[in-house]
Computed example of a mutant assay.
Amino acid sequence: MKLMQYRGYYGSIEASVEDAVLHGKLEFINALVTYEGETVKEIRRAFEDAVDDYLAYCSERGYEPEIPCKGAFNVRVGHKTHLKAALAAREKGISLNEFVRRSIEGSVG
């Protein structure tokens, strides 16, 4: 799925054949922020307006807006994989978090 990007936020685009409309939401944040349009140009504008509205809403209420992918997430890998990663990290003299961070950075470069 291709995503749009604006002001550090990412938005999806999906089509509703039944309603003949494009719709999407801001991705990678917990707040539900949606938008829609009938053309690609309209959905792009609606996405940008949704980001601007979300940031204005947060500012008006004194809230800190969520940032996409704040930097922490839980991964369930199973006992054997967890143990292998912990042992590999220990052998390298680094934390498990650092081991996973380096592994991800090496694979997505």
Rank of each mutant, 00 (worst) to 15 (best):
V33P: 02
S107E: 14
T34F: 04
D49W: 01
Q5N: 11
E38T: 10
L32P: 07
V17H: 04
L55D: 05
G11Q: 02
N74Y: 09
I43A: 09
A89M: 06
S107M: 11
V33Y: 01
H79W: 08
L96G: 05
L3R: 02
G37R: 03
L87V: 04
S107N: 12
P65E: 00
L83G: 03
H23R: 06
E64T: 14
E48K: 14
V108H: 02
M1Y: 09
G93R: 01
Y10Q: 00
E18K: 07
V33S: 03
L87T: 10
R7L: 11
K25C: 04
E14N: 06
L55G: 01
R102P: 07
N74L: 07
E60N: 15
E66I: 14
I13K: 00
C58G: 04
K2T: 02
E42P: 02
C58I: 10
T39M: 03
T81D: 14
Y6W: 09
E91M: 00
R90N: 10
L87A: 10
Y10R: 06
E64K: 13
F99N: 03
E98Q: 15
K70C: 08
V108F: 10
R61M: 07
F73S: 08
S103H: 13
R90M: 01
C69K: 13
E91C: 04
D53N: 14
K2G: 11
A85V: 07
G37V: 08
G93C: 04
I43L: 03
N30D: 10
S103Q: 13
T81G: 02
F73C: 08
G109H: 07
V33A: 09
E91D: 12
A31R: 11
G106S: 11
A20M: 03
Y35H: 07
A56Y: 10
R44P: 03
F28N: 12
S107V: 02
